[in-house]
Amino acid sequence: MSATDTPASLPAPAAPDSARRSPWGEVLHSLSRSGTFLTGLFILLFWVVCALFGQNFVPYDPLASDIINALTPPAADHWFGTDQLGRDVFSRVIVGSRDILTVAPLATILATIAGTALGLVIGYFRGIVDDIVSRVLEAFMAIPVVIIALLAIVALGTSKITVIVVIGLSFAPIIARTVRSAVLAERELDYVAAAKLRHEGALHTMFVEILPNVIPPILVETTVRLGYAIFAVATLSFMGFGIQPPSPDWGLSISSNYGMIGGGFWWTVLFDALAIASLVIGVNLVADGVHGAFND
């Protein structure tokens, strides 16, 4: 080790410090040690496995009715009992995760893509564009999702696609607002000025320069939104605007059975409700963990 062979006027450049973790490595490391995140992930993965493979391991066909055994309380051969058509509630709860776990994430992805693009544009351009679009978004956010859903269903008819579009578009403004505030901070940094001094186009500056630096808040917001999306999907199904029969969807099952709670047939509703609650809690735990990992 000698310093004499380095260029005359300058110190030898140091070897890049590869021992340190990359920022993403840091986040993964912190996630892997977060009890909150791991618990949430466990719950979420459980439901994902049910959605993907539930059909193969449930004891009964969730759609097969068996009128003779209708409304039997939980017992050894029907763990969660049966509903009014004699369908096995346990099988229905397990397989019922499928629709909600398709619709809610797709809606969230749609919201993220639309919201990110919108947020980048209004945050980057500021000025009149920002003023007008932000006011419109605020007005949009003031309308309850259910009203939007009603209007959309009248216009488009009931389908999973409608639910995805309705939830996606009503969540997009919220994500746009988060992205906008992150972009406002980024656009003041000198690398954006440096891009202008290369005559880079606005698209390049927004999507290649700024976007990679605002991924963390987007990721946090997306996981939080997923929890709300699950809740919204269940609500819409419950109200009959969402997923349609004969799907064993949770919200739908609660909707068609809740009249029977008064008759003492609690099991037809309770397990679906618990399923919704556990999934929302699981996703929120994941969101908490992700938030913590990025904001440590």
Partner: peptide, 12 residues
């Protein structure tokens, strides 16, 4: 620029 942390895009 004065501050290279701000002048160089940290994602690139």
């Amino acid at each position: 620029f004065q501050n290279p942390d701000s002048a160089l895009n940290r994602s690139h």
